[in-house]
Design a protein around this nucleic acid. Structure first.
Lengths: 221, 221
DNA sequence: CCCATTATGTCAGTAGCTGACAATCGACAA
DNA sequence: TTGTCGATTGTCAGCTACTGACATAATGGG
């Protein structure tokens, strides 16, 4: 007897809230389109706001800065990763759990089920944009760092450790983030067609992880 | 405090060049002082320029942006690291060479012989400033990334590998950078007095490196 | 001592971002 | 249905980082 309009509300979504989400989504879409069309630097916030017919001031009420709107999709994917990692069975080894969660994110993305706005092709374009835009790259790296802190928390909890005492969770989170970044970078740079889809990305990640041990080995001969 | 001791001139510099270096150094000093006194965000470029009695426009001819002047000292240290790494004997294992070069940087810094402007205490303050200033942190991370590219080049050359084919140089450079960053972070956060000097930093780095293997091991139990 | 080069200053302008206040819109209950 | 309250938005004014263009001053070479 609670809700008059809808029987089941997964999220108690008022009309107001829905409108906000629509505006936010429109801003992300417009921004992405403009950034890819004419470049990040040559796109002004005014332009983005105008494309959605809101004031510049409103834009800054949704996003703290210009970088944030460009990285919004990525932020959703990272959120998904955290949820998947938390859901991994407790008896998996830490690194294994992370690798599998990462695989899952890409598979979900391939099915268009991540945050309703991401695609694999879009990810590729986004990575290219980020890597070729210094200020975006900087913001992205900082964001990645924050993600590492979250991952550290999850790992420590999984294993029942205090991350302030035991260095391993933080180290693994950091190294993992690094490997993922390198995979993304190679993915975005990679021009060979047989590696363009999700499978290409997944294979690339595996290759990087497999080289981690050898890279840290004493001798490379 | 910052001692303006410019003693040795390796390159026969003209009067003009020397003057430029003096201005640049003065800008770095003034900026550092102001940033530490009142914070990065509350210090304007105008203020820094005024403190050295140059115009704002001149400031931007020396530094591409406000972040750069804050990270200038760090950039010198990283340059030193590269030189030391290149000078390591060719038969050292890659990771060993990097660990030793890193040790050397800190020892030189402790002797006040890095870029005439760095001290260990100053490094600690700088790290705190960076970690507590989002925009500085972002710039720092991007800069670190560039350093990783250079390191990759050096490693690949040492071992006679093509970094475009073999993933190991880049992976090792990245993981190394990550471990160094975590050490710095802990160093800046660490409040226990017995770890404040160079020895504290060196011990911290060793501890992080020693945990790298265990962190990547399958099980943590 | 003069000339070519190069560092510096001045000025005007763009763009990101913020605080303050007023207008407007949606939620909810009388 | 309507009136009130709180949240969202627009407008405006302002600060700061940063850049291009042009004028001026300093320097090093001949």
């Amino acid at each position: 007897m609670a809700t008059p309009t809808t029987a089941v509300d997964p999220q108690p979504t008022g009309l107001r809230e829905r409108k906000k989400q629509r505006t936010r989504g429109a801003l992300v879409d417009a921004a992405n389109r403009l950034f890819l069309e004419q470049g990040y630097g040559k796109t002004t916030v005014d332009e983005i706001a105008a494309a959605v017919e809101v004031s510049q001031r409103t834009f800054f009420r949704y996003f703290a800065n210009k970088e944030e709107v460009a990285l919004a999709v990525l932020a959703d994917a990272e959120e998904t990763f955290l949820e998947l990692l938390r859901a991994r069975p407790a008896d998996e080894y830490p690194l294994e759990a992370m690798r599998r969660a990462a695989r899952q994110v890409w598979q979900l993305l391939d099915q268009g089920r991540v945050a309703e706005r991401g695609t694999v092709a879009g990810a590729l374009e986004l990575f290219e944009l980020i890597e070729s835009t210094p200020t975006l790259l900087a913001a992205h790296l900082r964001h990645t760092l924050q993600q590492e802190v979250e991952v550290t928390r999850v790992l420590a909890e999984r294993e029942g450790l205090d991350p302030a005492v035991d260095l391993r969770p933080r180290l693994l989170a950091a190294v993992f983030g690094t490997v993922i970044r390198l995979s993304h970078l190679t993915f975005a740079t990679e021009r060979e067609p047989h590696r363009q889809g999700v499978d290409g990305m997944l294979e690339l990640m595996e290759r990087h992880f497999d080289q981690l041990g050898p890279a840290l080995a004493g001798s490379w001969r």
